[in-house]
């Protein structure tokens, strides 16, 4: 197909970008959602994301199996999560501070051990081709779907169901909303939070794997442009609802694609400001929807408290 798509390229890029660029957001925000539901914030997911990306790439390269890489990334996340979970629950230790220290520690670990893996090419995750055989290559490329994206797509409703309808989900919500009530129920707050944070970090590690093994599919030290930190805002944007996390991740992913694709059809000015659009949007939505008179629907009551 010799002719380009022209302006049709913009919506196409956004659709493709939502799926490609949204996948890491999706995993990290679901992980953060689970973590925050239990009443703790984990800013350290940025470090977890980087460690996950490095581990996945390294393991995939060394073993030749990207699936093993994904598993390893999740496990690496689990380990970092256990540090955060344990430390942030100590008396007088603030979870935001631990998170930022974990960003430094996690990225340090990722960069330290990731040096040998920058150069080589690791086997990438296979993608599923949803398009028929008689579409243009552009559409075909846009419809290359990663199994990781589908996995994330499945986890979101599953997590919603988990919160709403399972006993364990109830425990997590109780611990996050009102630790006193949870204690009265005989639930170990420490254990529930520890497991939630570890599971959340596991997901964030997989989010990192999707960066290095799917899109953009490399391991470099600048692979994450703050997705881990943004996920924290994204969860609030999504009101701690896993399904809205899904939509919000797609939105943020699409926004990443907007800048470059607009330039390629001739819009040139202000790409730095374009790139800041998701942040401005999140802030505006927070300003509009928050109110001092009532608490947000879905907000875990114990979030940001020192207990």
């Amino acid at each position: 197909m010799a002719e380009g798509l022209g302006w049709w390229g913009v919506p196409l890029a956004i659709v493709a970008g939502t799926m490609r660029g949204g996948t890491p957001f999706l995993f990290v925000s679901l992980g953060e959602c689970l973590t925050e539901k239990s009443g703790k914030i984990n800013l350290g997911l940025e470090g977890t994301l980087l460690t996950g990306a490095m581990t996945a790439y390294g393991v995939s390269y060394l073993t030749g199996s990207p699936w093993l890489g994904i598993l390893a990334a999740g496990l690496a996340g689990l380990v970092l999560g256990s540090i955060h979970g344990w430390l942030s629950q100590q008396f007088r230790v603030n979870d935001v501070a631990v998170g930022i220290a974990m960003i430094i520690f996690g990225s340090g670990i990722a960069f330290f051990f990731g040096k040998p893996f920058i150069q080589p090419s690791a086997p990438q995750l296979p993608t599923l081709n949803l398009a028929g055989s008689n579409v243009s290559p552009a559409v075909e490329a846009a419809l290359q779907i990663s199994p990781l994206f589908l996995l994330g797509l499945a986890i979101a409703p599953l997590m919603k169901w988990f919160f709403q309808s399972t006993r364990w989900g109830l425990y997590v919500r109780a611990v996050g909303d009102s630790p006193d009530a949870a204690r009265a129920m005989g639930v170990s707050i420490f254990k529930v939070r520890m497991l939630s944070i570890m599971a959340g970090s596991f997901l964030a590690g997989i989010g990192g794997a999707s960066l290095s093994l799917y899109y953009p599919g490399v391991w470099t030290e600048r692979i994450s442009s703050g997705q881990g930190l943004m996920a924290v805002a994204l969860v609030i944007f999504a009101r701690w609802n896993p399904m809205i996390c899904l939509w919000a991740s797609l939105l943020f992913g699409g926004a990443q694609a907007l800048g470059p694709s607009l330039q390629s059809v001739g819009i040139k000015q202000g790409y730095y400001l374009f790139n800041a659009a998701p942040y401005v949007l999140t802030l505006l939505i927070m300003i509009v929807t928050c109110s001092p008179k009532r608490t947000l629907a879905g907000v875990p009551g114990a979030l940001g408290m020192d207990n």
Binding site: M1, A2, E3, G4, L5, G6, G9, L12, A13, A16, G17, R20, G21, P137, A138, A141, A142, L211, Y215, P216, G217, V218, T220, E221, R222, I223, S225, Q256, A257, G259, P260, S261, Q263, S264, V265, Y271, Y272, N275
Partner: peptide
């Protein structure tokens, strides 16, 4: 297409993809 920074892997990939879309 300017990405705005020296290392922006995702934007670089998006730029490449959108240019490929443009033929």
């Amino acid at each position: 297409v300017f990405t705005g920074n020296w290392a922006e892997p995702i934007k670089e990939a998006e730029a490449t993809n959108s240019m490929a879309d443009q033929g």
